[in-house]
């Protein structure tokens, strides 16, 4: 599903003393199958932007097209439900949305709302529980008896069970410990490839953006501030600083090494391994 956003603007509480322009003149194309990282610090408009993509917020002006579904500011009320089935959002701290008596029922909530049969929904719950790496027996347990990390997985399973084409992740690893963080991100990354999803990851972590994203959009003060492939974005350390953002540690180290030694390297990937390879070339007969 290709995503087209044109001159999107959003005002909170228009006409009141609290009116605030949260998004200004956003135009963005995200083609099907992209893994996009949306970066920016709190209040830059990331969360407002993603809530437009499944109609939770309505544009104050401008237009949006998600595949064949298109809408613009001022359109009369349209039914967003078919769209919401295709666009899944994992909100920040998604475990706060759990409510059912059992894990299975909670995961079935989404599919049942979108008209799947009970058998199908049950089938999906089973599939998703194993997909997110939970043991089969949690199925009949109350989600509130699980650990924080397990509850997070149940909530994620509840979104994945809708089998969306577009997956939007709003800081899905916030508050987890480092090993939990890695596991969850690997899960999403594999899913993105196996199911050919379009994934939008809202994150503060430059490391995650560097590791997983095909494209990066940096938001600042309600506008698209930078846009490009990771290598392009990370070259502009100064510009990122204006948006109060840092480069990933690999790039930071490379810049420090360049300043100290005068050696230059181009990284195609931003992993520690590829950085080590690039640096090690200086010790192997000076080929860089």
């Amino acid at each position: 599903m290709d995503i087209k956003i044109r001159q999107l603007e959003h005002r909170y509480m228009p006409g009141s003393p609290y009116e605030r322009l949260a998004l200004k003149d956003i135009s963005l194309d995200i083609s099907e199958g992209t893994f996009l990282a949306l970066i920016g610090h709190t209040g830059s408009g990331k969360s407002t932007l993603i809530q437009h993509l499944n109609g939770l917020l309505k544009p104050s002006s401008g237009s949006i097209a998600m595949g064949d579904t298109a809408w613009a500011a001022g359109d009369k009320k349209m039914d967003m439900k078919p769209l919401r089935k295709k666009v899944g959002i994992v909100f920040q701290y998604p475990e706060h949305q759990l409510f059912e008596e059992t894990v299975e029922k909670d995961i079935m909530f989404g599919p049942m709302n979108f008209g799947e049969s009970e058998t199908e929904a049950k089938e999906r719950a089973k599939e998703m529980i194993s997909l997110v790496g939970l043991p089969e027996e949690v199925s009949d347990k109350s989600p509130f008896d699980l650990s924080g990390g397990q509850m997070r997985r149940v909530a994620i399973a509840g979104v994945l069970a809708m089998k969306p084409d577009v997956l939007i992740l709003d800081e899905p690893t916030a508050g987890l410990d480092p090993s939990g963080r890695n596991e969850i991100m690997e899960l999403f990354y594999n899913l993105h490839h196996d199911r050919k999803l379009t994934t939008i990851l809202v994150t503060h972590s430059m490391e995650d953006a560097a590791k997983y994203a095909d494209e990066i959009v940096v938001m600042h003060q309600g506008k698209v501030f930078m846009k490009g492939v990771p290598a392009e974005i990370f070259q502009q350390e100064e510009k990122l600083k204006q948006a109060s953002l840092d480069v990933p540690e690999t790039v930071e180290f490379l810049h420090k090494w360049q300043a100290a030694s005068g050696e230059r390297h181009e990284l195609s990937e931003f992993t520690v391994a590829s950085l080590a390879k690039a640096l090690a070339s200086e010790w192997k007969g000076g080929v860089s």
Binding site: V272, A276, L279, A280, W283
Partner: peptide
Amino acid sequence: KLREEGVP
């Protein structure tokens, strides 16, 4: 990683 790559 650097040691693995042979940097002493």
